[in-house]
Write a protein that binds this DNA or RNA. Structure first.
Length: 517
DNA sequence: ATGGGTCCT
DNA sequence: AGGACCC
């Protein structure tokens, strides 16, 4: 019997990367069908055209071009403002839902930004159209698939048809054209996805991946960012933008050599990627994000702290509105974070955060949230390097709700659930369990801690409203990070250990489960 | 750069 | 709290 996790991480996989063509521009076309695709369209954020449709690209408008330069190249450019991402987010979500509907588990779907989706179709059925061994008509190939390992080729031909199918669904159900890469790894799929655009796809033969990667400019390696590039240039002054991955492999032949440049964690990963080796898995993107943030950059100096606060309040209203409309499941953010950026610090960001106040009812008093945010801003402005930050020097504010506590929803009807006892056992030697009478019902290895704790005492202190509920078990677990005992409550409906302050949210989730039934 | 996100230290 | 990466 094979270990499923070993099986799951086995390489090669069959991976698709779907890339929305000039996503923001297409969103404008989908939203406004009267906007002709032959009209050059640019999307503006501040004084930059961040992306443009293909009509505009043919006229010399590029990505991240100054508006001034874009208009000089293409005076009749139709400009749409893209600073508010709301509808782009909505289209991205619709596309994700479409893919999810057609590629259910065990296919994993991972979103990168708003406009890229990895799909792992290793465990999907063989596509019905792939039986002739032919690729879809719009699918280019890198390398000779026929000459490659037979099973791997069958998988990639099928995956190419699945990519074709996925793109068809996105086009017919959402109205967007896409490009795609198909390969034996995320790396391979990603690197070939941009070879034939727009509205086309490319598959690469497994035997060609290392060869193909070797010929690319080294900055094409995903994960090799500006920091590593700088370190590389410092060690090897001969490196230029046209240095290839093969050149780099000559300079850095081993993982150990890479580790000296890029560190013990990133170095060996980059060494493998440069040889075309990538065993990373497509990971399902969770429906609840880990943070929600809104920011605004401004060019002209803000005259006073009051003006800065007024910007902050607007941003806070905006992030709270997003919280209310976008989160798929009940959630409570653990912290509020405010970030600023100043020109004089070389556009570096500094941030301050505070616990979200009010526990479960944190949204009830918006003014309290607002006061906390203002306190954080004042702390940042007052605490710059060597003294107060000049208010006029601040050119960006970001407000974020971070680290959501989402109640465990692993309670699907009929699913095998670990018993509470199993849960306790898994909590390990530093967990203690108390029942209503104070008797031990689970493994207790920290008797000193247990002796100091009593359910009545805990319940009275933490959740007086639940004090009389005999069904609620209190778990005391060691919080390794904080090096103290943490108090948790055992949900009677599922196997979750729930923090006392998130108990209400957790129960709301179970109510929602009931309503679905 | 913009307006977002991710994960790691 | 910040850094590095991604789009």
């Amino acid at each position: 019997m094979q270990d499923p996790s070993t099986l799951a991480s086995r390489s090669p996989r069959a991976v698709i990367l779907i890339d929305l063509d000039c996503f923001y521009a297409q969103c404008e076309h989908v939203r406004d069908p009267a906007l002709s695709t032959t009209t050059p369209v640019g999307i503006q954020q501040k004084n930059i055209i961040v992306t443009a449709n293909y009509a505009a690209r043919l006229r010399g408008v590029g990505k991240l071009m100054l508006v001034h330069d874009a208009l000089r190249a293409c005076p009749d450019l139709a400009i749409r403002n893209g600073e508010d991402l709301t509808h782009y987010r909505a289209y991205s979500k619709q596309i994700w839902a479409t893919l999810r509907a057609h590629f259910p588990a065990p296919c994993a779907i991972e979103r990168l930004g708003l406009d890229e989706f990895f799909i792992d179709v290793t465990d999907a059925p063989v596509h019905p159209d792939s039986e002739t061994g032919q690729l879809p008509g719009d699918c280019h190939a890198v390398g000779d698939l026929a000459g490659d390992d037979l099973l791997a080729v069958e998988a990639l031909v099928s995956a190419s048809w699945w990519a074709h199918t996925a793109r068809h669904h996105i086009l017919t159900e959402c109205g967007f054209t896409t490009s795609a890469g198909i390969g034996p790894s995320k790396l391979a799929a990603k690197l070939v996805s941009s070879l034939h655009k727009p509205n086309l796809q490319t598959v690469i033969a497994p035997a060609m991946v290392a060869v193909y990667v070797a010929g690319l400019p080294f900055r094409a390696i995903p994960g090799l960012g500006s920091s590593v590039r700088k370190a590389l240039r410092e060690h090897f002054p001969t490196i230029t933008d046209s240095t290839t991955v093969a050149d780099l492999t000559t300079l850095l032949p081993t993982a150990a050599a890479w580790a000296r440049i890029a560190g013990a964690r990133v170095g060996p990963t980059l060494a493998a990627l440069c040889r075309g080796i990538d065993s990373s898995l497509v990971i399902d993107t969770p429906t609840t994000p880990t943070q929600l943030s809104v920011e605004d950059a401004f060019a002209s100096p803000t005259p006073s702290i009051t003006d800065l606060e007024s910007r902050l309040f607007t941003l806070l209203q905006s992030v709270l509105a997003r919280f209310d409309t976008e989160l798929g499941a009940p959630a409570v953010p653990k912290s509020l974070r405010v970030t600023i950026r100043t020109r004089s610090s070389g556009f570096k960001r500094t941030s301050a955060s505070a616990p979200v106040v009010g526990g479960l009812r944190w949204r009830a008093d918006e003014n309290a949230v607002l006061r906390v945010a203002r306190g954080l801003l004042r702390k940042l402005v007052a605490g710059g390097v060597g003294g107060a930050v000049d208010v006029g020097d601040v050119n960006l504010i970001n407000v974020a709700l971070v680290h959501f506590d989402v109640p465990s929803s692993s309670t699907a009807a009929g699913a095998a659930q670990p018993t509470l006892l199993a849960q306790w056992a898994r909590a390990g030697p530093r967990a203690a369990v108390l029942d209503g009478g104070g008797e031990t019902t689970g493994p207790v290895h920290d008797r000193a801690a247990r002796a100091r704790l009593d359910l009545n005492d805990i319940a009275a202190r933490i959740r007086p409203d639940l004090h009389d509920d005999d069904d609620v078990l209190v778990l005391v677990e060691h919080d390794d990070a904080a090096d103290r005992m943490a108090i948790l409550m055992a949900c009677p409906f599922c196997a979750a250990s729930v923090a006392p302050w998130s108990w209400d949210v957790h129960m709301v989730a179970h109510d929602a489960d009931d309503n679905i039934d």
